[in-house]
C-alpha cells in the first residue's frame, strides 16, 4: 500500500516537474546582497550556483555585485544599486532559434556576448530607458543614470 502511494505521488508530481521552465543561466558569483523576483512574483536572495530563469528581475543593493553565466556563454555582471530584467531568452542552437532581450532599468552592467549574436546578429537587444540597443557583440558596458 505504501508503495502504491509512493508511485501515486510520483505520477502526480511528474507533470509539474516536466512542465517547469528550464533555467537559462547560473550565478557565478555574488558580493553583498542580490535578490531575484521570478515571473510568479516570488522573491529570494541569490547566492553562488543559483539558477536564473526567463522573466527574472535581478536587484542589487549598495556595494553589491553579481556575475552571471548564460547557457550560450554570455557573461554578464551587474553593479551596485541596479535593476536588470531578463525579458526573453531562447537558446536552441540546433534549430538556430535564439533570442536575448533584457532591460537595464537602472545601474551599470558589463557584458561579454556568447553564441547568440554569432548565430543571429539581430537576436540580442538591451533596453535602457527609452533606448533599445542592438548588440552584435562582443564586450561592452551599459550605464543607466537616474
Amino acid at each position: 500500500m505504501k508503495n502504491f502511494f509512493a508511485i501515486f505521488v510520483c505520477l502526480l508530481s511528474m507533470p509539474v516537474f516536466l512542465g517547469a521552465a528550464p533555467s537559462i543561466a547560473l550565478i557565478k558569483s555574488v558580493s553583498g546582497e542580490v535578490s531575484v523576483t521570478h515571473g510568479d512574483k516570488t522573491t529570494q536572495s541569490l547566492k553562488q550556483g543559483d539558477k536564473i530563469f526567463e522573466k527574472d528581475f535581478i536587484k542589487t543593493a549598495p556595494n553589491s555585485t553579481v556575475g552571471i553565466i548564460f547557457d550560450d556563454n554570455t557573461l554578464i555582471s551587474i553593479g551596485s544599486n541596479a535593476e536588470f530584467l531578463v525579458e526573453e531568452y531562447l537558446f536552441e542552437p540546433d534549430s538556430k532559434n535564439v533570442k536575448f532581450k533584457s532591460n537595464l532599468v537602472k545601474g551599470i552592467m558589463a557584458c561579454k556576448t556568447g553564441l547568440i549574436p554569432k548565430i543571429n546578429p539581430d537576436a540580442m537587444e538591451i533596453k535602457a530607458k527609452t533606448a533599445t540597443i542592438g548588440i552584435r557583440g562582443t564586450y561592452f558596458v551599459t550605464e543607466v543614470k537616474e
Binding site: A128, K129, A131, I135, G137, T138, Y139, F140, V141, T142
Partner: peptide, 24 residues
Amino acid sequence: GCTSKVQITLLPEDNGKTGVIAIA
C-alpha cells in the same frame, strides 16, 4: 539629469577585436 541618461561603451576583447553596437 537631462543631458545623458544612458551611456554604452565598447571595450576591446582579449584578442584586441571589437564588436558592433547600434542604436536608433
